[in-house]
Design a protein around this nucleic acid. Sequence first.
DNA 1: AAAGCAAGCTTTTTT
DNA 2: AGCTTGCTTT
Length: 827
Amino acid sequence: MGIYDTLNAQQKKAVLQTDGPVLILAGAGSGKTRVLTHRVAYLIDECGVNPWNIMAITFTNKAAGEMRERVDNIVGFGAESIWVSTFHSSCARILRRYGDRLGYGTNFTIYDTDDSKQLMKDICKRYQLETTQLKLRQIMHAISRSKDNLVGPDEYAMSAGNDYIKSKISKAYTEYQSALLKNNALDFDDLIMKTVELFKKNPDVLEYYQDRFRYIMVDEYQDTNTAQFELIRLLADKYKNLCVVGDDDQSIYRFRGANIRNILDFEKYYKDATVIKLEQNYRSTQQILDAANAVICNNLGRKDKALWTDVNDGEKVHLRQFDTSQDEAKFIATEIGSLKRKGKLSYDDTAVLYRTNAQSRELETRFRYEGIPYDIVGGVNFYSRREIKDLLAYLKTIDSGRDDISVKRIINVPKRGIGATTIGHVQDYADQRQISFFEALCEADQIVAVGKSAAKLKAFVDMIMSFRSKQQKMSLEELIKDVISVTGFMDYVRTLDDDDNSSDDNDRAQNVDELISGIAAYEENEEIEQPTLSGFLEEVTLVSDIDRIGDDNEKVLLMTLHSAKGLEFENVYLSGMEEGVFPGYMTLQAEDSDPEAIEEERRLAYVGITRAKRNLTLTAAKRRMVRGESQYNRLSRFVDEIPANMLDKQRPLSASDYLFDGGESIDDYEGAEEFGRGRDMFDDDPDDGSDGYSGIKPAYAKGLSKGAGSSSFASGSGKSELAGTYRIKATPKPKVTKPRAVPPDKPYIAGAGATHAKGSLAGISKGMPMKKSLPDYVVGDRVEHIKYGKGVVKALEDGDRDYKVTVEFDDCGQKIMYAAFAKLKKL
DNA sequence: AAAGCAAGCTTTTTT
DNA sequence: AGCTTGCTTT
């Protein structure tokens, strides 16, 4: 039986167990993709299953592509009719076919996060839903979670009851859904939720797909949410040939609704499920696995398992701690450079991972400086870059015009003298008549309020119309080029960052070129029967950056830990191993209320560690700039969780190699001397009380973070010692600065003495009086304003930061202003 | 009415 | 550091 003999016993069992529900708990690097592809081959070659009846679902297009490729290689005939795709594109495909049953046109557009946000913004404005307590972000999040849990707007409304916040969200949800429907658009979450709805309301459609997908395999099962589970459950309900593969230890998408119970409770739901554990790792050295196991075993409530390997040679996991994040970046870049020169690594087998996208900047700078080729994955997705989204909005508008968000996006891009007010008038007109924004534009001359702007609107409509007629006889590539030239798009692109430094001047132009090539490539792809504009647009919105990386270039990859899931590299640098960075600041803040959050961070650490095949280096900085503030962070707890004897804690090269270059004086590091030198990695016994951090408990970091939030200084204080708040997350060494006045469980914030009056200085900018003073006028006095002229003081109110004064002006009516601003002169 | 400019406010992670 | 918001200028 050839190919199956190369599998280990557990893998073989997973391949041969074709019928009924199967749960494969596949540890990192345990060869699960191999199992899945062999399973597909086995189904076809040995069990006589028609390839047409097999479905394999993944989360990313990249994973789908890889699986497809490997299936193609191993399956002799019919591989192309196996349905291998992501949740989102599978659903999109189903809805393109049956979406009309739910009232959507089959050429619906798919909104990305950006589009959804734009739409929600409009809704919030119209119904005045946004308040200080309820931010757009929260609304979007609440709705997204509801959709993940298959809670529609009506059900949400019922559960909202008298809750003020919830009823506002409910209103937003209802309006948002109806706006989406009107725009013939679906957001990411809708793709799943609406497909489930389709199946539930249309048993005939469900049965069609049940019969089609008689064998279903789901990869990364630990990341499925409730809606995705339901989707799979429905599809598999008739034949129950459902094989899910996952690793509860790698569940890192809880924040976007992934329900870890899906994998933990699989056996409860499917009582007759076969469970198979794959624990032998074929990727990493034992040293790396030991470190990974040491970290992950601190999580509770996981399925018990431990990775092991045959590979026993290998180096210890390296740990390097630096004074500043610049030093850290410099180390990573120079070490990669020098190892490369020695022939000890190749760039394309090396990755630098970090917790947040923001951390990529410093690394990027350093990599450029050292001349090391790199690629950054993620951050701003290629297709969400401004210039790209603008062009896509043109294409969407040309394609249908039903999507108001796209039309509004480009109506004044490049600038053609159509502003917010005019757009508002057109929208009002459209609302009154229940027509789309674009339809309203077509009737611009009927809209009284827009006045002479109507001509500009008409010109815009004519332009779109002419694109539409050209589209008939043009290829997509020609069309986009035409759009670019007719609109003068490149001139506009050049205006986008002229204030900025030279480096990314060409980036946007290059992005445009890349988009053109992307379109050309799409048209030439012979796998697509009929290249269409909407087809291209769909492909584009469902693609993430990770899907676009090829393995052909010799480049170091920089990416977040999340993006790195499913990938592997010979050499991995895990940077920013600091409390407050990783685990992140938000997690620490919520530690008490949400203990699961820290476990998710730990799983992320586990994912990061297990990406490495042979060399793993953990790096940290004592001091780091975050949003313009210096943060002093202690080493990450995840580092502490790795027993010291498993780590190589080589002292960094001498200080002169990593520190104080470029003319910085030692004085610049004063803060570091005082606060940052706490426990460093050479202190082998973190709990002996001899280091500066003993006794710090999570509450500490929590308190500190909160304190820091309110201690921001006004920019007006310039470069004074207090400017640039020190956000200190680690306690200082007691002997140095521990202020007796501050109780040990309270954060110590540098300069806190000057800022305890919360917010008293915030918001006061340059040249303004630093303190409020009682005006020399009282209610009833006549005063003079430099611009508004004379008037009578109607009210004087003592506000937080300044006196609020209300004046009834003789000429300009009533105005409310801050006394310090108004500079009123008593008459 | 639109464009340009300064100041505030904010951010994990992504299909 | 980046983006939205509000204010001023044309």
